[in-house]
Design a protein around this nucleic acid. Structure first.
Lengths: 203, 203
DNA sequence: AGATTTACATACAGACATGTATGTAAATCT
DNA sequence: AGATTTACATACATGTCTGTATGTAAATCT
C-alpha cells in the first residue's frame, strides 16, 4: 500500500474515529467489530490497528474528539446561579444541535458496558463528576456570599444534588425519544432546578 | 439425561437466573456467553436454552427476579413529602443491603448496551420512569393541596425534576465506589431534595 | 539520493459464540 | 402400566472477531 502523507493519515484517523462513533451508537460498543468500523471508514482493520491499540483505545478517541459537554468557564456573565443555569442549558442545547455530541453521549450513557478495559472509563466519568462538583460547589458558595442563595444552603450538598439532577437529566433526555418524560420541558426543568436554590422573598 | 421434577426444574431455572445476574455484573451483558452462565449454574447451554429463548430473554428474567426498587404504595404513613422521602430512602437502602438488587441495577445502569434486542428494555425503563412521574406528581399535588408545598409548585414539573435527581442518584451511587461523590451523603441528599419542596417559613 | 520509516493492506491462526438438532431417561399424564 | 412429555445433555454446523505477522510503496529523513 502506498504510504500516505502525514496530513492524509490524520484525516484517515479522524474518519475512523467519526465512523466508530456512528457505529458505536448504532450497534453498541461491545457489539461493534473493528471490521465494521474499518469498512465504514473505507479502510481495513490494518489501518484501525495502526492508529489505535484496540477498541477501548478507539473509544477514548471518540470521547476526546467530542470533548466535554459542559464547561462553566465559558460563562462569565451574570451571577453565579445564572452561570450555573446557562451552563446546563448550553449542555442540553449542544445535545440538541450537535449530532456528534449526541451520538457520543448516547454511546457513553446507554450503549457501553463499563467492564474490563472500560472500567477505567467509568472512573474517568466519575472524575468528571468530581470536577463538576468542585465547580458547582464554588458557584453555590459564591451565590451564598452574594446573598443570592439562602445562608443556610450547604454548597457542597447542593452541588451534589445538582450533579444528580444533571446526570439523570442527561440520561433521561437521551432516552426520551417521544419527548414525554423530560425532553419537552428541559428548559423549564433546568430553570426550575436553579430557581429552587435562589433566595425567595417571604411567601 | 434424567428428567427433573417440576420443582427441581424451577430451582434450576432460578439458579440460572441468579448466576446470569452475577456473571452479567462481572463481565457485562454483551460479553457474557451463555456457556459461562451455564457452567456457573452447573448445567449446560442446553438447560439455558430450554428455559430461555436467548440472552435477552434471560436478562428479562434477571430483572423480574429482582423486581422494582421503589414502590411508593409500600409507604402509607406520613404526609406526601414524607412518603416521597421514605420511598427514595428505602430504594437506596435496598441497594445497600440487598446484593441481588445491587447487582441487577449495576447491570442495568452500567453494564448493558441498550441496542438491538435490548432497545426494548430501555423502553421498559422509560415506562417505569413514567410510572414514577405519575406517582410523584400525585404526591406533589397532594402536598400542594395540604399546604405542605408552596401553592406555585407545579407538581408535574417538580416530579420530573425529582425523577432526574433520583435517576442520577442511582447511577452515581452505583459508580461511586470510594464514596466521595454521593455515597457518603445519600441520606442528606434525599432529605435535602425533598425538603427543598416543603413550604418554608419566611426567611 | 539513498536509507529509513510510515501508513496502511493482506494474510494467518486461533478462539469463541450462537442456534439448532438430536438423544434420553425419568416424571407426569391417562 | 403404557404413552407421552419434559428437562435437560450432547453434538453439529457455522459465523465472527481478535491480534499479530508480514508485505509494500511512497513519504520523510539525512
Amino acid at each position: 500500500m502506498a504510504r500516505k502523507t502525514k496530513a492524509e493519515a490524520a484525516l484517515t484517523r479522524d474518519r475512523i474515529v467519526t465512523c466508530a462513533r456512528q457505529v458505536f451508537s448504532r450497534e453498541g460498543v461491545t457489539n461493534t467489530s473493528l471490521e465494521t468500523v474499518a469498512k465504514e471508514a473505507g479502510v481495513t482493520r490494518g489501518a484501525v490497528y495502526w492508529h489505535f491499540r484496540d477498541k477501548a483505545d478507539l473509544f477514548m478517541a471518540v470521547r476526546q474528539q467530542t470533548g466535554t459537554l459542559l464547561r462553566f468557564d465559558d460563562f462569565r456573565t451574570g451571577d453565579a446561579l445564572e452561570r450555573l443555569e446557562s451552563g446546563m442549558q448550553a449542555a442540553l442545547d449542544r445535545l440538541r444541535t450537535d449530532r456528534q455530541a449526541l451520538e457520543t453521549y448516547e454511546v457513553m450513557l446507554w450503549k457501553c458496558e463499563y467492564v474490563g478495559a472500560f472500567a477505567g472509563v467509568r472512573k474517568d466519568l466519575m472524575s468528571a463528576s468530581s470536577l463538576f462538583l468542585t465547580e458547582v460547589t464554588e458557584l453555590y458558595d459564591e451565590a451564598v456570599r452574594m446573598k443570592q442563595a439562602p445562608a443556610n444552603l450547604d454548597p457542597a450538598l447542593a452541588a451534589r444534588e445538582t450533579l444528580c439532577f444533571y446526570a439523570g437529566l442527561l440520561k433521561l433526555w437521551l432516552a426520551d425519544e417521544n419527548g414525554v418524560t423530560v425532553r419537552a420541558e428541559v428548559r423549564q426543568l433546568i430553570a426550575r432546578h436553579v430557581a429552587g436554590r435562589r433566595l425567595q422573598k417571604a411567601v
